[in-house]
């Protein structure tokens, strides 16, 4: 199983002291999933913590690894939306007005040891940033099982989810969830996916429609871009690392490895596996 390897030595401390981040262009679901997977393998090979931020074009629904495809087709607001299945768990996410991250941490790193540690590090950094901008943000400490079962990720409440107390919150939950994450624990590396909602998606209606950070932020509290910059710096600080924002894209689109991985995510066999 993809649990920590306690005896694996820290083989390259110089790599470990850096958090490398790419801002990748928006892409379709299959390519985004393939690029995350490639990032994870690169993290394992180089024994370094790597992160990519990206958007989705066209707007796309991503399903959790174990969600049933029939549940997607039964959602009337989702007819005709492109759909991809993630390698990580959790509920369905409506992408298009969000920023998604893929964070790859090698098994030798302390953050990979417990699922909760990585959530706390990534989500906690954003909580601090939002609190400094006068948003009342926090992380869910415990959730009832029924709150973890809704089709939509942003209707669920599970440990570590980042929520904001705000008048726009639905009466069901009493807060707005704006960041949710899920992990795939592979041999040698942990890949954590997360989605930060930036704005309410105008193409979505019904219970899958949720406000984003930009809808909650006071006008004098800075922009969503400012928040993201602050979040990344705090994350690097928590890691005790130097933040390096890499130019260009984290992957080469026509690379054979990327193409192979992308093809897998675009097949019916993967999408319809449940």
């Amino acid at each position: 199983m993809g649990l920590p390897r306690h005896t694996f030595p820290y083989s390259d401390l110089s790599q470990r002291s850096v958090l490398r981040v790419w801002r990748d262009p928006s892409a379709a679901g299959g390519l985004n999933m393939a690029a995350d997977e490639a990032l994870a393998r690169r993290s394992e090979e180089t024994n370094s913590v790597l992160m990519r931020l990206y958007g989705w074009q066209p707007h796309t629904v991503s399903l959790g690894c174990f969600q049933k495809i029939e549940d997607f087709f039964s959602e009337r607001f989702l007819a005709h939306w492109p759909v991809v299945r993630r390698p990580s768990g959790g509920g369905a996410i409506i992408h298009g007005t969000d920023v998604t991250y893929g964070l790859a941490v090698p098994s030798s790193h302390k953050w990979s040891k417990r699922t909760e540690d990585l959530y706390s590090a990534v989500h906690g950094a954003l909580v601090q940033e939002l609190n400094d901008r006068d948003l009342k943000a926090g992380m869910v400490k415990a959730a009832r099982r029924e709150q973890e079962q809704n089709f939509y990720c942003f209707n669920r409440r599970a440990f570590g989810d980042l929520v904001v107390e705000h008048p726009l919150a639905s009466s069901d939950c009493g807060n707005c969830k704006i960041l949710g994450s899920a992990q795939r624990r592979l041999s040698g590396v942990v890949l954590q996916h997360g989605t930060l909602l930036l704005h309410r998606n105008p193409q979505m209606h019904g219970e899958g429609s949720h406000p984003g950070l930009g809808d909650l932020l006071q006008s004098d509290a800075g922009s969503v871009s400012d928040v993201i910059e602050g979040w990344l710096q705090r994350l690097a600080d928590q890691l005790g690392s130097r933040l390096i924002q890499e130019p260009g894209c984290s992957y080469t689109k026509d690379n054979e490895d990327i193409m192979t991985r992308m093809n897998r995510y675009e097949t019916g066999a993967w999408l319809n596996r449940r």
């Binding site: 199983m1 440990f159 992990q183």
Partner: peptide, 12 residues
């Protein structure tokens, strides 16, 4: 594969 509330792990 095995899924917990916040993580999916492969069985090797």
């Amino acid at each position: 594969e095995i899924e917990s509330v916040k993580a999916v792990s492969d069985l090797y």
